[in-house]
């Protein structure tokens, strides 16, 4: 190699500088084009929902819509709670205690995203081999705590962020 080829000259600097500035410019234009597809302000505004749970009898559940997805609110009987807590964690594909899935002192209330963690279908209640939910799409079974027991779903049904405003009202989101 000759010395001239190795030497960085003004032209090389100009090329590199132009490419760099050009790449930044292209990136700055592309990003809005990509980001416009993310949830807009109107979608984000729907982020919280308040639910009246005073009418739910023990053993029954209601389904409410939150951010376009169903939320299962189930009031469990003492028997069901006991059943959920008697499960050996080694039997669970995604080990999690029932206590971690409910609010302390509100053990009867199971509030979870009613969406199968496999490919997003809505599981059917009181179905399946574990007295909980069953997803009709690809056959995942969930127990009375909403934990996956069998099938292709990788994780338990998700617990959304929620709080009790008072004894009869919860705020989801």
């Amino acid at each position: 190699m000759s010395k001239e080829e190795k030497k960085v000259n003004r032209r090389d600097f100009l090329f590199t500088a132009s490419y760099t500035i050009g790449a930044v410019g292209v990136g700055a234009v592309i990003w809005p084009m990509i980001d416009q597809m993310n949830p807009d302000k109107a979608q984000q505004a729907l982020a919280t929902t308040e639910v009246d749970i005073s009418q739910v009898e023990p053993g029954k559940s209601i389904t409410v819509l939150w951010r376009g997805k169903p939320i299962f609110v189930k009031r469990r009987t003492p028997g069901e709670i006991q059943e959920a807590r008697a499960v050996n964690l080694d039997d669970l594909p995604d080990p999690q205690n029932d206590e971690e899935r409910v609010k302390e002192g509100k053990d009867e209330w199971l509030v979870m995203l009613g969406v199968c963690t496999h490919l997003g279908c809505v599981p059917l209640k009181d179905k399946g081999d574990y007295n909980g939910w069953f997803c009709p799409c690809h056959g995942s079974h969930y127990d009375v705590s909403g934990r996956v027991r069998k099938g292709p779903a990788p994780t338990n049904m998700e617990i959304p962020k929620f709080e009790f405003l008072d004894n009869n009202t919860i705020k989801i989101g």
Binding site: M37, L119, G120
Partner: peptide, 27 residues
């Protein structure tokens, strides 16, 4: 729902990609 959720199987960025495809928190 099922087809877009296929992308949620991608580790780490799967959920963000799915939300981006939806433009919302569900279809």
């Amino acid at each position: 729902t099922v087809i877009t959720n296929l992308f949620s199987a991608i580790p780490l960025v799967g959920e963000s990609i799915t939300t981006w495809l939806w433009g919302a928190y569900s279809v």
